[in-house]
Computed example of a mutant assay.
Amino acid sequence: MILGYTTGVFDLFHIGHVNLLRNAKAMCDKLVVGVTTDELVSYKNKKAVISFEERMEVVRACRYVDAVIPQEDMDKFAQWEKVKFDLVFVGDDWFKTEKWQTIDNKFKEVGVRVVYFPYSKGTSSTLINNVLLDLRSDKK
Protein backbone atom coordinates (compact mmCIF):
# COMPACT_ATOMS: atom_id res chain seq x y z
CA MET A 1 0.00 0.00 0.00
CA ILE A 2 1.30 3.46 -0.95
CA LEU A 3 0.61 6.16 1.63
CA GLY A 4 0.58 9.78 0.46
CA TYR A 5 0.72 12.97 2.48
CA THR A 6 0.14 16.64 1.78
CA THR A 7 -0.57 19.75 3.80
CA GLY A 8 -2.20 23.12 3.45
CA VAL A 9 -4.25 25.81 5.09
CA PHE A 10 -7.24 24.96 2.87
CA ASP A 11 -8.91 28.30 3.63
CA LEU A 12 -11.77 29.21 1.29
CA PHE A 13 -11.62 25.75 -0.32
CA HIS A 14 -11.37 26.15 -4.11
CA ILE A 15 -10.56 24.28 -7.35
CA GLY A 16 -6.80 24.46 -6.70
CA HIS A 17 -7.34 22.49 -3.51
CA VAL A 18 -9.52 19.96 -5.33
CA ASN A 19 -6.89 19.54 -8.06
CA LEU A 20 -4.13 18.98 -5.49
CA LEU A 21 -6.12 16.37 -3.58
CA ARG A 22 -7.41 14.60 -6.72
CA ASN A 23 -3.93 14.40 -8.27
CA ALA A 24 -2.36 13.25 -5.00
CA LYS A 25 -4.97 10.53 -4.46
CA ALA A 26 -4.40 9.27 -8.03
CA MET A 27 -0.79 8.47 -7.05
CA CYS A 28 -1.41 6.63 -3.78
CA ASP A 29 -3.73 4.14 -2.12
CA LYS A 30 -4.37 6.24 0.99
CA LEU A 31 -4.07 10.02 1.27
CA VAL A 32 -3.46 11.74 4.60
CA VAL A 33 -3.87 15.51 4.67
CA GLY A 34 -2.40 17.84 7.27
CA VAL A 35 -4.53 20.94 7.79
CA THR A 36 -2.61 23.92 9.15
CA THR A 37 -3.74 25.02 12.62
CA ASP A 38 -4.84 28.60 13.25
CA GLU A 39 -1.73 29.10 15.42
CA LEU A 40 0.60 28.05 12.60
CA VAL A 41 -1.27 30.23 10.09
CA SER A 42 -0.77 33.25 12.39
CA TYR A 43 2.93 32.35 12.72
CA LYS A 44 3.11 32.92 8.96
CA ASN A 45 1.62 36.42 9.58
CA LYS A 46 -1.71 35.45 8.06
CA LYS A 47 -5.19 34.79 9.36
CA ALA A 48 -7.56 32.15 8.03
CA VAL A 49 -11.13 33.22 7.25
CA ILE A 50 -12.51 29.78 8.08
CA SER A 51 -11.75 28.29 11.52
CA PHE A 52 -9.36 25.36 11.85
CA GLU A 53 -12.14 22.97 12.92
CA GLU A 54 -14.28 23.89 9.92
CA ARG A 55 -11.33 23.64 7.51
CA MET A 56 -10.63 20.14 8.90
CA GLU A 57 -14.26 19.14 8.25
CA VAL A 58 -14.27 20.55 4.71
CA VAL A 59 -11.10 18.63 3.81
CA ARG A 60 -12.37 15.48 5.56
CA ALA A 61 -15.53 15.67 3.40
CA CYS A 62 -13.51 15.57 0.18
CA ARG A 63 -13.81 12.15 -1.45
CA TYR A 64 -10.09 12.03 -2.29
CA VAL A 65 -9.04 12.27 1.36
CA ASP A 66 -8.72 9.21 3.59
CA ALA A 67 -7.59 10.91 6.81
CA VAL A 68 -7.11 14.44 8.12
CA ILE A 69 -4.64 15.44 10.83
CA PRO A 70 -3.54 18.79 12.27
CA GLN A 71 -0.39 20.39 10.90
CA GLU A 72 1.01 22.08 14.00
CA ASP A 73 4.48 22.95 12.71
CA MET A 74 6.39 23.16 9.45
CA ASP A 75 8.62 20.13 10.12
CA LYS A 76 7.57 17.66 7.41
CA PHE A 77 10.18 15.13 8.48
CA ALA A 78 8.81 15.04 12.04
CA GLN A 79 5.39 14.35 10.53
CA TRP A 80 6.88 11.53 8.45
CA GLU A 81 8.26 10.00 11.66
CA LYS A 82 4.66 9.83 12.96
CA VAL A 83 2.78 8.91 9.76
CA LYS A 84 5.44 7.03 7.72
CA PHE A 85 4.13 8.13 4.30
CA ASP A 86 5.76 6.99 1.04
CA LEU A 87 5.01 10.10 -1.03
CA VAL A 88 4.73 13.75 -0.04
CA PHE A 89 2.97 16.18 -2.37
CA VAL A 90 3.87 19.88 -2.52
CA GLY A 91 3.39 22.79 -4.90
CA ASP A 92 6.01 23.35 -7.58
CA ASP A 93 6.59 26.84 -6.21
CA TRP A 94 8.87 25.02 -3.71
CA PHE A 95 10.77 23.10 -6.42
CA LYS A 96 14.55 23.59 -6.15
CA THR A 97 14.25 26.09 -3.31
CA GLU A 98 17.03 25.76 -0.78
CA LYS A 99 14.59 24.73 1.96
CA TRP A 100 12.97 21.96 -0.09
CA GLN A 101 16.25 20.69 -1.54
CA THR A 102 17.30 19.94 2.04
CA ILE A 103 13.95 18.31 2.87
CA ASP A 104 13.96 16.37 -0.42
CA ASN A 105 17.45 15.00 0.30
CA LYS A 106 16.45 13.97 3.83
CA PHE A 107 13.35 12.19 2.50
CA LYS A 108 15.43 10.35 -0.14
CA GLU A 109 17.47 8.84 2.69
CA VAL A 110 14.34 7.14 4.06
CA GLY A 111 12.80 6.24 0.69
CA VAL A 112 10.16 8.99 0.53
CA ARG A 113 9.57 10.59 -2.85
CA VAL A 114 8.64 14.28 -3.08
CA VAL A 115 6.13 14.98 -5.85
CA TYR A 116 5.83 18.59 -7.01
CA PHE A 117 2.46 19.55 -8.48
CA PRO A 118 1.91 22.68 -10.57
CA TYR A 119 0.50 25.56 -8.55
CA SER A 120 -3.05 26.42 -9.66
CA LYS A 121 -2.68 29.62 -11.62
CA GLY A 122 -5.46 32.14 -11.28
CA THR A 123 -6.95 30.73 -8.08
CA SER A 124 -5.78 31.06 -4.52
CA SER A 125 -7.33 31.82 -1.17
CA THR A 126 -5.24 35.00 -1.01
CA LEU A 127 -6.61 36.14 -4.38
CA ILE A 128 -10.20 35.34 -3.32
CA ASN A 129 -9.70 37.27 -0.07
CA ASN A 130 -8.34 40.28 -1.95
CA VAL A 131 -11.24 40.25 -4.42
CA LEU A 132 -13.72 40.11 -1.53
CA LEU A 133 -11.98 43.01 0.23
CA ASP A 134 -12.08 45.05 -2.99
CA LEU A 135 -15.77 44.27 -3.54
CA ARG A 136 -16.66 45.20 0.03
CA SER A 137 -14.71 48.46 -0.06
CA ASP A 138 -16.45 49.46 -3.34
CA LYS A 139 -19.86 49.22 -1.61
CA LYS A 140 -18.97 51.80 1.04
Rank of each mutant, 00 (worst) to 15 (best):
M1W: 04
Y5C: 06
T6K: 01
T6M: 06
T6W: 00
T7L: 01
T7M: 08
G8C: 11
F10C: 03
F10M: 02
D11N: 05
D11F: 04
L12C: 03
H14D: 01
H14N: 02
G16R: 06
N19M: 04
L21G: 02
K25Y: 06
A26R: 13
C28M: 08
C28P: 06
C28W: 08
L31R: 02
V32Y: 05
V33A: 02
G34F: 03
T37A: 07
D38V: 12
E39Q: 14
L40Y: 08
V41I: 13
Y43L: 10
Y43A: 06
N45P: 05
N45H: 12
N45Y: 09
K46Q: 13
K46T: 08
K46R: 15
V49N: 00
I50P: 00
I50W: 00
S51M: 04
F52D: 00
F52C: 05
E53R: 02
E53M: 01
E53V: 03
E54L: 06
E54N: 07
E54H: 06
R55L: 00
V58C: 00
V59M: 01
V59L: 03
V59A: 02
R60Y: 03
R60S: 04
C62M: 02
R63K: 14
D66L: 02
V68F: 00
P70Y: 04
Q71D: 08
E72Q: 10
D73I: 11
D73Q: 10
M74K: 11
D75Q: 12
K76D: 10
F77S: 11
A78N: 13
E81T: 15
K82V: 15
K82N: 13
V83C: 08
K84N: 13
D86E: 09
L87K: 11
V88F: 06
G91L: 07
D92M: 07
D92Y: 09
D93W: 10
K96C: 12
K96W: 05
T97Y: 09
E98R: 12
K99T: 14
K99S: 11
K99W: 10
Q101R: 14
N105L: 12
N105Y: 08
N105K: 14
N105R: 14
F107E: 07
E109D: 14
G111I: 10
V112L: 07
R113V: 15
R113C: 07
V114C: 10
Y116D: 04
F117E: 06
F117D: 04
P118Y: 11
P118M: 11
Y119K: 12
G122Y: 11
G122S: 10
S125M: 05
L127M: 12
N130C: 09
V131C: 10
V131I: 15
L132P: 04
L133C: 09
D134I: 10
S137R: 14
K139W: 12
